[in-house]
Design a protein around this nucleic acid. Sequence first.
DNA 1: GCGGTAAGGGAAAACCTTTTCCCAGCTAAG
DNA 2: CTTAGCTGGGAAAAGGTTTTCCCTTACCGC
Lengths: 349, 349
Amino acid sequence: MSADAEPAPVSAKPPVTLREVAAVAGVSVATASKALNGQGRMTAETRERIRETARLLGFRPNSLAQSLLRKRSFTVGLLTNDTYGRFSLPLMAGVSDALVDKGVSVFLCNVEDDTRLGQLHVEAMLDKRVDGIIATGKRIDRHLPVDLSNLRVPVVYAFTQPDPGAVGLVSDDAGGARLAVEHFCRLGRRRIAHVSGPASFAVVHARAQAHRDVLEETGLPASEPLLGAWSEAWGHEAVARLFGKAGREGWPDAVFCGNDQIARGVIDALRERGIDVPRDVGVIGFDNWEIVAEATRPPLTSVDMNLAALGREAGLALLSLVGGQPAAPGIRKLPCRLVVRQSCGSPPE
Amino acid sequence: MSADAEPAPVSAKPPVTLREVAAVAGVSVATASKALNGQGRMTAETRERIRETARLLGFRPNSLAQSLLRKRSFTVGLLTNDTYGRFSLPLMAGVSDALVDKGVSVFLCNVEDDTRLGQLHVEAMLDKRVDGIIATGKRIDRHLPVDLSNLRVPVVYAFTQPDPGAVGLVSDDAGGARLAVEHFCRLGRRRIAHVSGPASFAVVHARAQAHRDVLEETGLPASEPLLGAWSEAWGHEAVARLFGKAGREGWPDAVFCGNDQIARGVIDALRERGIDVPRDVGVIGFDNWEIVAEATRPPLTSVDMNLAALGREAGLALLSLVGGQPAAPGIRKLPCRLVVRQSCGSPPE
DNA sequence: GCGGTAAGGGAAAACCTTTTCCCAGCTAAG
DNA sequence: CTTAGCTGGGAAAAGGTTTTCCCTTACCGC
């Protein structure tokens, strides 16, 4: 029983190889390979016999060996600096979703804001012969802290600032803002305020401009956006500014907020002042961060950036680049959608 | 100029191989390999010359070829069903952090709650010859929807229910609860209530038991936990129950909440009733979800599960298993820590 | 019966690196 | 001078698969 005495490592036997399949089936490895890949010529019986043998033995081809030869690893790298963020998660899920059933796996690399770490990850990915790289971040007007411009593999940028001449996918913030403001217009709101984040964010200006545009197109009174922080506290303060002055006449009857946290602050502050949402004032947020939007009282209508779809598109775009299809460089904007809940006056059907 | 006319694929030349380095340095590939890996015997000059050549040419060894030979791919798979969750992110960051400087990359696989998808991912990972797998989820008392019990590679479970006989790492919820309740005791709070999530969660019972234990040890009056949902709304309702009865004497002077959202609801509800936090009632949450804890007024003291550390430990544990070290099977509980802010009465500092 | 052709299958190179031997040359001891 | 031992370096196999040729056999028409 000496065989039994062997200290089984972690677990049993090595994987079954094509050579073994061929031996059992009584053919050469070449024939076995061709049988399993549907290549070459042989009788249907031979092919079927080999296939059956492989199935019986539980043969699975060694991806490493395949990749070495084919020069395709069926692996891509996903680079992000949004460690804890809620933007990268849906995006990653979308990427993974688009790739999994093409047999492509995703290396997740978190580079924080550390150039050295980024370099390290990129080199590791290239060493492992990824077929391509998706770069993603936490805001669309900033570069990742790592240079991806002259790599041997294609790169797609999603929700982060692309290099010039590269393929980039971002959400259409202006379009999203239009959705919100136009929704208010349709509901008959006349004085639509805009409370947003810091002026250093490009999206703040894009959304503010869309807000202005819609007001003008609709013939509503212009209103300057209030810029502050991406926080509940700023929502409170903005309400103090907007609704501080006496005389309801000057008050807005709708507030479009730059994110859901601001919106949450706005709604809480309005309630504290006895102003009813949505009767007196409608509120719409941005990001559709469900856990916030649904906990808000009343539940918050919000603009969703469709990040999972963005991720899917990024995955598909990368795949076609890897396949050799030239993709049109430049930034492609994907539409947002409005998720209507109860904070804007329209009953959710 | 026919060479110029060639449609450059995506980008230039193939990577430089060891063979080329050897040719340029005027040695055999065997010697080149040994020079770069510090193996074999040769004059210092030869070794240095080869190294320099490799550096000059920008040689990077092909991981695929190395892995094929060494039977180590320096990749691991990370399986999760917590797509949008805030638990898996810090955990993943920890895992990645622990592995990156050992040259190990991480395949991120999101399996939702779909057995078929899980199977697909696991097979893809095994085909790609991952060295091991880390399984993680959104709660520690549920299995992933996929069987990892008889794989050819080691598996470590982190923040999810492990298979019997496997290595599992979870947060010490009871310990975390003790931290919170004992902190209240030290601050002189006498009537410490507990508002938690649904009874179907194991952690709810573990934390409730710890709460009871500390009260008993300290000689404080017992109090039954209030079980509900993981939501702000439940926090509001719990306050209505706890503080509804007339006569302040029966009111708690501290509430330990099962998560930060409940705590947020509790604090908001208390404020609406004119009960001051932390003067009249101290509140402590669980999870230390910073974006919520810091937006709460006052900022919320909360128990942090140290998920990044958990992830790091999981990564290291897996690595040692891969290295052949037998790890003690069973569940290891990692300590939580209390992050003190202003909601419990102790000034931060 | 012969030439031609197509079908069925195999040998071997290729992918890139690591590692085990082995060899040639030299030195030092006997 | 012989032998042992060491030094510096190379040849070749190994790892698992794919793919390009090539060879054999059988069949067909004449």
